[in-house]
Structure formats: C-alpha cells, structure tokens
Amino acid sequence: MKPRRSRLFDIRKPLPSKTSTVLSISFFLLLLTGWSSITDTGLVSDFFLPRPMQVLQAAWGMYVDNGFLWDIAVSIYRVLVGFCLAAIIAVPLGLLMGSVQFFRSLLEPCLAFTRYMPATAFIPLLVLWLGIDDTQKFSVIFVGTFFTLALMVMVSTLTVPVALIEAAIMLGAKPVQLIFKVILPASKPAIFNDLRIVLGWAWTYIVIAEIVAASSGVGYVILNASRFMDTATIFVGIISIGLIGLISDLLFNVVGRRLFPYLQRARS
C-alpha cells in the first residue's frame, strides 16, 4: 500500500475533493500572506501596492456606495453578448472545418492569418465604424474571440478517432450523419472546454474596449482610478474580474459534470 504522502503527486490520479479544495484555498491564503508581508514591512510603498485592508475598504465603498455592481453587470452583459455571437458562428464553422477537408483548406489559412492580428488594433476602426456604444464593445469581443475559437473547435474536432468515423461509414452513415451523430458527440467535451477557455480571453478584450471608449463598465472604472493614481480602486477592479472569471470557471465545471458524467467516471 502506497504511503499517503506519495499519492498527492501521482501522475494523472484524481485527489479527493476536500483535498483539492484545501490546496486551492491554501494557495490563495499564501498569496495573501505574501502580499501583506510585502506591504506591512514597507518593502513596497502602498502608492504602488496598496495594503489588503486598503483594498477591502475601497471595495466596500465601491460596492456599497458607488454602484460598482452596476458596472460589473454592464461588463458581464457586454461579454456574454459578444462571446455568444462569436460562439454561435465559430462552433459550427470549426466543426465543419474539422469534418470536411474542403472547408479546412478554404478557410483555415485566412482564419489563422487573422488570428494573429491583435483585437486592440481594430478598436480605432471599430470606433470609427460603429461609434462608442455597446455595439463597438460587442465587436471587439467578437473579433478577439471568434477566429481563435473557430480554430480551437476545428482542432478539437480533428481529435475524434478515425476508427469511430470508419466504423460509422461501414455501417452506412451518410456525411451529415457522420458530422452530427459521430463527430459532434465525440468532440463535445473538448469543444465545451474550448468555450470555457475563450470566455476568459473575452474579459481581457472588454476591459480594453471599455478603457478606450466607454462611460460605464469595469474597464471604465479602472481607467478613472488610474487618472487619480487610486491604486486601491484599480486592484478592486482587477480582483473583481478575477473573481468573476473564477465563478464562471466553476459554473462551467458544474455544467460539464452534468453534461459529460462519463468523463468523470473514466477519470476515477
């Protein structure tokens, strides 16, 4: 029987849920302790790195008195709309490219070319074309996520074992049946994970879009704070985005367990 300590470092072996939770919380507490130690000892001025208590006080004022929850809600709305528009087009397109060589040869070079163009470079054009309202924010997120998501879905589709496809062909499956009855079901877990990853990238783009041209949202609050050198407020905005991302990740994990319970059984 293996010693308990060695089980923590076994390759590809799941840990008990309680152990995983304790490890995750412990690392956050370690970071918080290091942050407090650096600021309390005066190694870094609180002008550059505010104390945790200063950030908590700023957060209380922002959430309770200044309506920061509304700015968060506005940013979440913009992210969801832009990301959903990208996913609605990118997922079927990526599935098609991963299933049919004709579409992969036709579209992959163009998508790969565009993927390397930074979405921030399009912001002046999008402001010129669409103005500074929410449509421009949706477009920034769309440009920043669509091309990469389509290629990621294509790669996830290409990982479906050829043996499954050949077996379906031998059983008389037609091309449309191959895509929707074999390839899509086999690649759904990977595509779901692609959506989870790209959603995190969408938050980087919305902050940039709101910093450039906006009158509300988390990025707008961070920009205003930077003008007054209010580093505590900037930290609140950054940490709030991290918390939103963590919550969305947890929600994706919960939904993934419900949609793909067989993956959990296979891992255990």
Results as ranks from 00 to 15, higher is better:
residue 244 I to V: 13
residue 177 Q to F: 09
residue 85 L to E: 02
residue 263 L to M: 13
residue 198 V to S: 01
residue 218 V to K: 03
residue 84 C to G: 08
residue 247 I to Y: 03
residue 247 I to Q: 06
residue 53 M to L: 05
residue 213 A to H: 00
residue 221 V to E: 07
residue 198 V to Q: 03
residue 123 I to M: 07
residue 198 V to H: 00
residue 244 I to T: 06
residue 194 D to V: 05
residue 209 A to R: 02
residue 140 V to L: 11
residue 89 I to T: 02
residue 31 L to D: 09
residue 137 K to L: 08
residue 53 M to K: 08
residue 134 D to M: 04
residue 126 L to D: 05
residue 11 I to R: 14
residue 140 V to Y: 13
residue 59 A to Q: 04
residue 71 D to L: 04
residue 143 V to F: 09
residue 52 P to W: 00
residue 46 D to Q: 10
residue 208 I to E: 02
residue 7 R to D: 13
residue 111 L to R: 05
residue 250 L to C: 03
residue 239 I to M: 11
residue 258 R to T: 07
residue 117 M to A: 07
residue 34 G to M: 11
residue 236 V to T: 10
residue 63 Y to V: 08
residue 93 L to C: 02
residue 80 L to H: 08
residue 246 L to C: 11
residue 79 V to A: 14
residue 222 I to L: 14
residue 90 A to F: 04
residue 239 I to D: 08
residue 235 F to T: 12
residue 181 K to R: 15
residue 201 W to M: 03
residue 88 I to N: 05
residue 173 A to L: 05
residue 134 D to A: 02
residue 12 R to Q: 05
residue 5 R to I: 07
residue 20 S to N: 08
residue 192 F to G: 12
residue 2 K to N: 13
residue 180 F to E: 12
residue 160 V to G: 15
residue 164 L to R: 15
residue 102 F to S: 04
residue 132 I to L: 05
